[in-house]
């Protein structure tokens, strides 16, 4: 990306610079436009979160955060992520393994199905579970008579989160495993390793950074999911409110400082995710095949 390219020989640098790069004026114009856009849409919103939370000083910020309801919301968010992320981790590995290492009919269709939750509105993702488990549904009366509570309780929130974060790990691993092919595994198997040993000592070390990358994105979404969770949660304070839902409730009560205080925690989570993600991309770009494709 050297722009002031010098040519060998002629010394007519001006001509070459104009030919394969833009004029200085155009270059600064484009950089300026891009930076203004980033500032308006990305930097300022992030800055607003922190400024609004600190509006009445750090003292109030901390008081607000130590509220028991907020605490319950943090606990619930962590609980949901701790259940949903490992489930999708196991599924993601299984799906990528099946798609990348074996040949079977309907592979393209299967890949499309895995991606499906990305093209469905989060609200619809929540709605499908209401239709499935609600009191008016087929399963509803049966669940009720057995005292099983799924909607407006933790199981429903976990299900909706699993649905929404379903593709993250799998779609990160599929291209990576396809790229790596099956020769390493074949070598291990021919040397007498069992299927499990092959997976544990050969495949897993090969995909570990890609896996971590997928888990990182999966976790960010699991903790931050709003639409799907809001439909199934029932918004019971202190019981079924995750952090994003707590932000909404506080905000709608005009309790702005508290809303933004909880929001800073989520924003910090986002920043940590971005930093780790960039580090992974910088250090292990070779081992993260799909690093730039979402």
């Amino acid at each position: 990306m050297a722009h002031d390219v010098t040519t060998t020989g002629t010394g007519n640098t001006e001509l070459v610079r104009v030919a394969t790069s833009e004029s200085r004026f155009a270059r600064y114009g484009l950089i300026g436009t891009a930076l203004c856009f980033v500032a308006l849409f990305l930097v300022l919103p992030l800055a607003a979160v922190f400024t609004e939370a600190m509006r009445n000083g750090p003292g109030e910020f901390l008081t607000v955060l130590s509220d028991p309801e907020t605490f319950a919301a943090i606990e619930l968010t962590l609980l949901v992520a701790v259940i949903a992320v490992p489930l999708n981790l196991v599924f993601g590995i299984a799906a990528a393994w099946a798609i990348a290492k074996f040949e079977f009919k309907g592979k393209a269709f299967l890949t499309t199905l895995i991606d499906l939750p990305f093209s469905v509105s989060p609200v619809i993702s929540g709605l499908v579970f209401v239709l499935l488990f609600g009191s008016h549904s087929l399963l509803g009366p049966w669940l009720q008579s057995h005292g099983i509570q799924i909607l407006f309780a933790v199981p429903g929130i976990v299900l909706a989160t699993v649905f929404v974060t379903f593709p993250f790990v799998a779609r990160e691993l599929i291209p990576l495993m396809q790229e790596q092919g099956t020769s390493d595994e074949e070598a291990a198997l021919s040397l007498g390793a069992s299927g499990w040993q092959t997976f544990w000592y050969v495949t897993l070390p090969n995909i570990k950074w890609g896996l971590l990358y997928g888990v990182l994105l999966c976790n960010a979404r699991a903790m931050g999911e709003f639409g799907a969770v809001s439909v199934v949660s029932g918004h019971i304070r202190g019981l079924t409110n995750t952090m994003p839902l707590q932000v909404e409730i506080l905000y709608n009560e005009y309790n702005f400082v508290a809303a933004f205080a909880v929001a800073t925690l989520l924003a910090l989570l986002a920043l940590v995710t971005l930093v780790l993600k960039s580090l992974l991309e910088m250090k292990y770009s070779e081992q993260i095949a799909a690093s730039r494709r979402h």
Partner: peptide, 25 residues
Amino acid sequence: RIIDAMVDLPFALPTAVAGIALTTL
């Protein structure tokens, strides 16, 4: 490099947080 990393912010920032931040602005 920072700008490049920032581009992914909307993927990482929970939508509710983005919503109240944009409204404030």
